[in-house]
Each structure stands twice: as structure tokens, then as C-alpha cells.
Design a protein around this nucleic acid. Structure first.
Length: 592
RNA sequence: GCGCCCGUAGCUCAGUGGAUAGAGCGUCGGCCUCCGGAGCCGAAGGUCGCAGGUUCGAAUCCUGCCGGGCGCGCCA
């Protein structure tokens, strides 16, 4: 349970009671009341601003109102002390029994601890990765993938009905360029079976923009499937065939990368399919009916002009009517749709599938696109849907503090797969969440793989493994049957009296609120930060046991105390596992 | 020039309107030899970029500056 929400409800009840007794106005707005942990722990376990926000509307002095509320709060179950502080804060301390009940709750819930009904089953669509199918994923894609996947898991834990979706941009100019590069590889693969210089001449006339070796195999497979039948044809006669094969091959490549990340998508949407279904025309005609599309000439961008700027009438979407800075073009000069046009159709498609909450995870270089897409979503949903875009900043690869220089041309480009092969999925996923999505992130191969306290992945996984180790130790001393879930559920938790033990219980009791807050803010990195904090508290208590034998988890001479502490350790292990599950990192029982 | 993101301790960064702004690293001063190992305690260190505003209360919201990143019609 979210104890802060629980106490907030209690406070609201008290206000209702006071109103019924004629001591407060009946129609007070209780919405601004917050219940939260005080920043300074010496102020107690929980603080509320209720008296401060109600004082004005109720026509009372804050401290007087606080005193009135405090009196009744003291009678609330689980509340040990209440004091009025500062301008009118009410500080609460909760009883030990309340905290022990939280511990029991964790043991009972298992990794489901922290699950919330906040979302109420509301459908949420999280679109992420959505890399062009033109090559293997790079590290930046990997960051977006992790952010999106963890955000999805977080929202699920908070009670939303999440769909994870990948949008394949398989209709634009980029995939045509890919097809040409593959065609060149195809000519090369035919080698001596065709006339000399055919491949060279093609490359000279149409320099491949995708030069990666990963296209060699695609060219070879075209030879296997089509022989030399594509040679000598006009582009129009082979482009579709080659493009289809190339996109399929690239999607297979990307699927492998995603599999290496341990990632699964619920829906994969194709831009080409949308376009071929006429979804773009349909979408735009709806907007046309509402007079949101017109032909006009855009003002040139202020400041330095693009070299080839010339005023030109274009088909424009009236995005300024929905918060954008300028209206945006929908059609290219060759008559085809802009990416924006098909993306509007795609977002309408998502909305029509029942989503009012849309989340897109993009690279920060697409930041200039956010407003127009949000405008479009407002327009096509007629204000019923809202788009949140999470922009992911750059990942800087380093080795022992030295930046790794990457160049596609020089062939020193490091793919996501290479990183995963080197450090493993768990390390990558965790590190990607050790910064907010909108902050640049340094990824140092040396640091993220070392087994030290400075490495957060190791630090958290070690805490989890250490929990298992401690419990194994207790099993060795008391027998496996002594520390079963049933036995721990029956332990006398009141024996946990050390402040460090209570701190740990309180930290775990904060987990449900953290999940809800992170879910509402769409900020999965908070999970990783929380796990580091919790692991730190556990390591701290463990270390205290080195100096003070009284605090050791396993005390052979005191079975009841050991059992109580095993309950604590099991709970810590459970909450760590619960958080690791959200970010998709394995909760290991042993470190190798 | 315009838009978006960012600016918090020496460094890297947390902090969804609450009280005396936190953590890790680094620095300084003490300890420490292990339930499974990469350690513990303490100290110093801040006009939260600057200036206004809203509020009982602002690192947080609004406005304007300053500095950095990204983007700026027919790429995605």
C-alpha cells in the first residue's frame, strides 16, 4: 500500500467529520492536500500541509487548524505522535507496529509489492526504438529502447494497460537508398558471372549511402533467390523487390539486437502498410473537412537562410491552431507525403485503437519535431488524446575515461550489439537508467564492468545476491524449513528494533509511492536511483554487523531474532527484485 | 534570429510547490582484517546561472536576460 495515500484518505475523512460537526465549511477543496515524507527525517515519518492549504478557504489560522486536525489524527490507526510545526505543518510519527505490518505486507505480496491500481487499466501506448530499417541498432537506439521498455513495465506495475510498439519507417526515401546500396552489393555478389565493371559503374553512378558490411549477405541472398534476373533492369523494375528483401533483412537484424536486449514488442506497425491502406489520405481528408489543411507559403526561417530557399506554395497543416510555432508541410515537392503526414496518420491509427495516452521515445535530435506532433495528436483526437515525448540524449562511449572516437566511414562505428556482447544485457539496461532521459550519459566500458561500489549495477545486484547469501547461511544453521515463507511470516517482527533496521523497513515502505510517482511522471530512471538507495541501506546494515555482532543477521544463539531478521532480509531481496524486474535486469542469486 | 532541452557542492548527478537543498566520487582527519569480497565513521564544501513575478511557502511555476546542447520547408 501507498501509506501516504492511505493517510491522505484519513485526513480527508477527518475534514469531512469536522465539517459534519460544523467546525469546517462543508465545501472545502481537499485536492491540494499533500502527504509526503519530510525532507528532514527529524520531523517525523510523514508530513502534511493540510492546515496550510485549508486555512485560507476555511477562514482559520493555519496553526489553529493544524492543532484541530492533529487532535483527531492522533486517533488514527498506526499514528504514534502528531505535532504541529513551523507555519502549520503537521508531522506524524507512525507506530512500530505499522512498520512491521508493512514488512509483513511485502513478504505476502512478493515481487508484486508496489503494484498499484493508479492507472485503472487505462490503455497507454509506448512507442520506442522505431529506428529506420537501414542497419543494425546503435547505442543511442539502445538507450531509447531501454527507456521505453522500462517505462512500459513501470506503467504496467502502476496499473496501466501498456502496449509496446515499434513503428517501422519503411516507406520513405531512406529505404529506397538502402535498396540501392543492397542492389550494388547484389551486383558485387554476382561477381564474374556478369560483365566486368557493371557493379563499379553502378556504384559510381549511384554511390551507396549505406556502406556497412552487413549488407553483403543481403546481396548474396538476392543472388540465391533471383539469380542474375535483376541485372540490367531499370530501377523501377527492381526497386520494390530489392527494397522488400532489404527491409526484411534489416528488420531481422534489428529483431536480433532487440532480442539481445531482452525486449519484446506487442505491436509492430509499418509505415508502408499505412500508406498503402490509404490511411494518410483518409487522415488528411478528415483534417481537410475541418479546414485544418491549406495551401500556403511559409515564411523563411529567421537568421541564416538555407542555400536553396525559395518561397513555394505547399500543402500545410494548421498546427499553429494547436500550439505549434508555424504550420507544417505535408507534401514534398515530388508529390509524396512528408514523414510528418504519415506520422499523423500513424498517431491517428494509435488513437483509434483506443489510446488516449500516447508516449513516444525519440532521440534528442528529433526535439524540433515534438510540438508539431503534439499539435497533430490534439487535432486528430479532437483534444481527447495527449502525446508525451521522451527525448533521449546522447550516449558517450568511453573506455577508462577516454572517449571512443566513432566514424562510420573509418569503420570504427560501435553497434549496440557489440556493446551488449561486451558488457551484457543487465549492465547496459541498468546504466541506461542511471541518468534522466534528457541528460547526456557517459558509458565507460571499464567502469560499468568493474566490481566496485562505484558501479551501480554491481552494487544493486550484489545487494540482492547478498540477501540470498545471508538466508542460505541461516538455512545452514537452522535448516531450510526454518526460513520458509511460512516460517518467516510467523516471525516475531517486533524483535527488529535497531534504527538501521527500521530505516530499511521505511525505505521499503516508500516503494509503492515511488512507483506511482515515477509512473505519473513517466520517469523510469527513478527506479534505478531508488534501487541504489535501498541497496546502500542494506550494505550499510550488513557492514554494521561486522563491527557489532549484535547486529548480525544470523545469531545462532537466538533463533527468534534470526528469524525476524531473515524476514527483513527476504523483504529487501523481494523489493530489490521487484524493482529490477521493472527495469528488466536479472535479480541474480549469486555473483560469479 | 526562432523553438525545445539543460544550468544544483571541486567532479558526476538526484530532487512530481514545502521546513535548515541531498547522494556518490574527490579532498581532509580518524578507524578497519572479513555472517561472502571489493570497507567504516566524521569534517569541510552551495547567493540551486542572473534578475524580477505568482504564492503562506519556489531549485521546482511564470516573464526577461546570460551560458551550453539539439533542431530549424521538400531527411527520418
Amino acid at each position: 500500500m501507498n501509506l501516504y495515500r492511505f493517510l491522505q484518505a484519513s485526513i480527508c475523512e477527518i475534514c469531512a467529520d469536522l465539517a459534519a460537526d460544523g467546525l469546517l465549511p462543508a465545501d472545502l477543496d481537499l485536492g491540494r492536500i499533500t502527504v509526503e515524507p519530510p525532507r528532514d527525517p527529524s520531523h517525523g515519518d510523514v508530513a502534511t500541509n493540510a492546515a496550510l492549504v485549508l486555512a485560507g478557504p476555511a477562514g482559520r489560522k493555519p496553526r489553529m487548524l493544524a492543532t484541530m486536525l492533529a487532535e483527531r489524527l492522533l486517533a488514527t490507526d498506526g499514528v504514534a505522535t502528531v505535532e504541529v510545526a513551523g507555519p502549520g505543518f503537521i508531522n506524524l510519527r507512525l507506530t512500530a507496529a505499522f512498520w512491521y505490518a508493512r514488512l509483513a505486507e511485502i513478504l505476502h505480496a512478493g515481487v508484486a509489492y508496489g503494484d498499484s491500481t493508479l492507472g485503472g487499466g487505462e490503455p497507454v501506448n509506448v512507442e520506442h526504438v522505431s529506428a529506420n530499417p537501414t542497419g543494425p541498432l546503435h547505442v543511442g537506439h539502445g538507450r531509447g529502447a531501454v527507456v521505453g521498455d522500462a517505462l512500459g513495465a513501470l506503467l504496467e506495475k502502476a496499473g496501466f494497460a501498456v502496449t509496446r510498439e515499434y513503428y517501422v519507417n519503411d516507406a520513405g526515401a531512406q529505404v529506397d537508398k538502402l535498396a540501392r546500396a543492397v542492389y550494388w552489393r547484389y551486383l558485387c555478389a554476382l561477381g564474374e558471372s556478369i560483365a566486368d565493371g557493371v557493379a563499379e559503374r553502378y556504384a559510381a553512378q549511384s554511390p551507396p549511402e549505406y556502406g556497412g558490411d552487413y549488407l553483403i549477405a543481403v546481396g548474396e541472398s538476392l543472388v540465391a533467390s533471383h539469380g542474375d534476373s535483376l541485372v540490367g533492369l531499370d530501377e523501377g523494375n527492381w526497386l520494390a523487390t530489392v527494397r522488400e528483401a532489404a527491409v526484411a533483412a534489416m528488420m531481422a537484424l534489428i529483431a536480433e539486437d532487440l532480442k539481445a536486449l531482452g525486449m519484446v514488442f506487442d505491436v509492430i506497425s509499418s509505415e508502408r502498410a499505412l500508406v498503402e491502406d490509404g490511411a494518410v489520405e483518409m487522415t488528411l481528408s478528415r483534417l481537410q473537412e475541418r479546414d485544418l489543411i491549406y495551401t500556403g507559403v511559409l515564411e523563411p526561417p529567421k537568421g541564416k537562410l538555407p542555400d536553396d530557399w525559395e518561397p513555394r506554395p505547399q500543402t500545410l497543416f494548421r498546427s499553429t491552431a494547436f500550439g505549434d510555432d508555424v504550420d507544417r508541410p505535408l507534401r514534398k515537392s515530388d508529390g509524396s507525403w512528408t514523414y510528418f503526414a504519415s506520422d499523423i496518420a500513424y498517431h491517428l491509427d494509435k488513437h483509434r485503437r483506443g489510446f488516449r495516452v500516447l508516449i513516444d521515445v525519440w532521440g534528442a535530435d528529433h526535439g524540433g519535431y515534438v510540438k508539431r506532433m503534439q499539435s497533430a495528436v490534439r487535432a486528430i483526437s479532437e483534444g481527447r488524446a495527449e502525446l508525451d515525448v521522451k527525448l533521449c540524449q546522447m550516449v558517450n562511449l568511453l573506455d577508462a575515461g577516454q572517449p571512443i572516437k566513432m566514424s562510420k566511414r573509418a569503420g570504427t562505428f560501435i553497434t549496440l550489439r557489440e556493446v551488449l556482447d561486451r558488457v551484457g544485457r543487465d549492465v547496459f539496461r541498468f546504466i541506461m537508467l542511471t541518468r534522466r532521459n534528457d541528460a547526456p550519459l557517459d558509458f565507460d566500458f571499464e567502469k560499468v564492468t568493474e566490481q566496485s561500489r562505484e558501479n551501480p549495477v554491481f552494487y544493486v545486484q550484489y545487494a540482492h545476491a547478498r540477501c540470498h547469501s545471508v538466508i542460505r547461511h541461516a538455512e545452514g544453521e537452522f535448516g531450510a524449513e526454518a526460513v520458509t515463507d511460512a516460517a518467516l511470516a510467523a516471525a516475531d517482527l517486533a524483535l527488529l528494533t535497531d534504527p538501521a533496521e527500521l530505516d530499511l523497513i521505511k525505505a521499503m515502505a516508500a516503494w509503492p509511492r515511488l512507483v506511482e510517482g515515477a509512473a505519473e511522471a513517466h520517469e523510469p530512471h527513478r527506479i534505478a536511483f531508488y534501487l541504489q538507495d535501498l541497496a546502500g541501506l542494506f550494505h550499510l546494515l550488513w557492514t554494521k554487523g561486522k563491527d557489532d555482532a549484535q547486529l548480525r543477521f544470523v545469531t545462532i544463539a537466538d533463533r527468534p531474532l534470526t528469524l525476524a531478521r531473515m524476514a527483513l532480509v527476504r523483504a529487501i531481496q523481494t523489493v530489490l527484485a521487484s524493482g529490477l524486474k521493472v527495469i528488466g535486469v536479472e535479480a541474480v542469486e549469486e555473483l560469479r
